[in-house]
């Protein structure tokens, strides 16, 4: 069952066509990844789902209901540009934000107390946010996003700017929420995070959704056309290979996408002539590779995928 249904949405700002005829569905109880380089239109799409900006055309429904102030309170949203009122106390602030999402003052108070306890932050209740460290205020930000106990969570670039501890914690929260049957949509330009967490994905490039579906299915459909190789010795042989694309390369490791049916045994032989091979493995392509081969090498700026 689709909880978020996006159908043919369009959004332009002046002459920039930020989102161009995009459709995708988010299934209940899944983690959905919205991927693409910076400027691909992910944030604009997310803002439209949150009813912060209105689509020029097309429709977005949440649980079958057209987006509106009512659907806003079904969603817990953590924007890419995050922040809190610095001069306001942690407790009051969380209560206020939860009340804006439709909770009564009493409910908001209870939820705030519960989550502060759970994050072992109960003694921050009367502290001003300005006094907190960055990591601490990131925790408060999570609580603000989830305190009203919505069914749908949307995180825009959730891992950017997070310290490693909070990053791990957020991952655990997301998986935990999914296990409780909640639906999570998050956007990122960092592909490896998606591989670890997502069930479904939608790839964005230049305002268009270029690839979407179940992550496993997508990877399977590309076949085991990639080689992971670990070696010791001269790596210059990698440059001599033809009809390949090397995506991830370091002094003793490389991820080689084999193109045009090039014989993999041949590559192994070449490698063996030049270096000592520790590992040679045929695998499904990485998402980065999938993304590149979907939109075409000429259509992306590799730096944006870093």
């Amino acid at each position: 069952m689709a909880v978020i249904e996006v159908t043919n949405i369009d959004k332009s700002f002046g002459s920039t066509h930020a989102v161009n005829n995009v459709s995708f569905d988010v299934t209940k109880g899944k983690i959905f990844g919205l991927l693409g380089p910076n400027g691909a239109g992910k944030t604009t799409a997310i803002r439209m789902i949150n009813h912060i900006i209105i689509a020029d055309s097309g429709s977005i429904t949440i649980n079958g209901q057209e987006v509106s102030p009512e659907t806003q309170s079904m969603i817990g949203y953590m924007p890419e540009e995050r922040g809190l009122y610095k001069k306001m106390k942690v407790g009051e602030q969380l209560i206020y934000l939860a009340q804006l999402k439709g909770l009564s003052r009493q409910e908001a108070k209870e939820a705030t107390g519960y989550w502060l306890d759970r994050f072992e932050a109960a003694d921050w209740y009367n502290k001003e946010v300005g006094e907190l460290s960055k990591g601490m205020s990131q925790k408060i930000q999570f609580i603000a996003t989830i305190a009203h106990d919505p069914d749908i969570y949307i995180f825009d670039e959730p891992f950017s700017g997070l310290d490693p501890i909070n990053s791990e914690m957020l991952k655990d929260i997301v998986i935990d929420l999914r296990d409780q049957g909640k639906t999570i949509l998050f956007s990122t330009h960092r592909m490896e995070q998606v591989e670890q967490m997502c069930d479904e994905i939608c790839l964005f490039n230049k305002g268009r959704a270029v690839l979407k579906g179940d992550l496993r299915d997508i990877k399977k459909s590309f076949g085991k056309n990639t080689i992971n190789i670990e070696f010791q010795g001269d790596s210059s042989f990698l440059d001599e290979l033809e009809n390949v694309r090397i995506n991830n390369r370091s002094t003793n490791f490389a991820e080689i996408r084999v193109l045009n049916g090039q014989d993999m045994q041949q590559i192994l032989k070449t490698a063996m002539d030049h270096a000592e091979i520790f590992k040679f493995e045929r695998i499904e392509p990485s998402l980065t590779e999938i993304f590149i081969s979907t939109v075409g090498e000429d259509n992306i700026n590799p730096k944006e995928l870093a």
Binding site: I52, P79, E81, R82, L84, Y85, L97, L100
Partner: peptide, 17 residues
């Protein structure tokens, strides 16, 4: 301006028109 510079505005905008 405070709401803009502290970046809370988008959180608020997802709840309030």
């Amino acid at each position: 301006i405070e709401e803009k510079t502290s970046r809370i505005i988008e959180v608020i905008a997802s709840s309030v028109k």
